[in-house]
Design a protein around this nucleic acid. Structure first.
Length: 139
DNA sequence: GCCAACGTTGGC
DNA sequence: GCCAACGTTGGC
């Protein structure tokens, strides 16, 4: 299983909205960057991801699960090869993990959130996943 | 194919 | 609101 981080501005798509979609989940659209798309394309059903609020909040607020493997983004312009996956909310972080806390943790210095701040779909290593979960009050 | 100009993202 | 980082565009 692989781990990811998905970014969204809460004014456009928030964790609360994601939770309302319930167990069936909903499509994650709008990725328009080739590296982010490459990461999306590597996802498999059952993978997990952090849900990160950019711009407002700037924290990891929840965990989602990929429920449908990559397929063409229905919101892409005709003929453009962008991809989407379906994700569902699994649980909110008991304690949201702020970006500042991630930056302050030396073990997370190589996390993509720190090194590639603008990438909207990022891989997360298993070690990083576990550290962030612990910081968020899981375990 | 290079690179300057420009647009966008996102933290501060 | 500012600006750094980074991607894209377009002239040459």
């Amino acid at each position: 299983m692989n781990y990811w981080l998905l970014k969204s501005e809460p004014s456009a798509w928030s964790w609360a909205m994601q939770e309302k979609e319930g167990a069936k989940g909903t499509v994650w659209t709008g990725v328009r960057n080739h590296l982010a798309k490459k990461n999306l394309m590597a996802m498999k059903a059952g993978d997990k991801g952090f849900f990160y609020h950019s711009n407002e909040g700037k924290d990891i607020v929840g965990i989602v699960e990929v429920v449908r493997a990559p397929y063409p983004d229905p919101t892409a312009a005709k003929g453009e090869p962008w991809a989407a996956v379906d994700v569902r909310a699994i649980m909110a972080m008991p304690k949201p993990v702020p970006l500042a806390a991630i930056r302050a943790e030396p073990k997370l210095a190589r996390m993509a959130l720190v090194t590639s701040a603008r990438l909207s779909v990022q891989p997360v290593t298993k070690v990083e996943w576990q550290i962030v979960c612990r910081m968020g009050g899981i375990n």
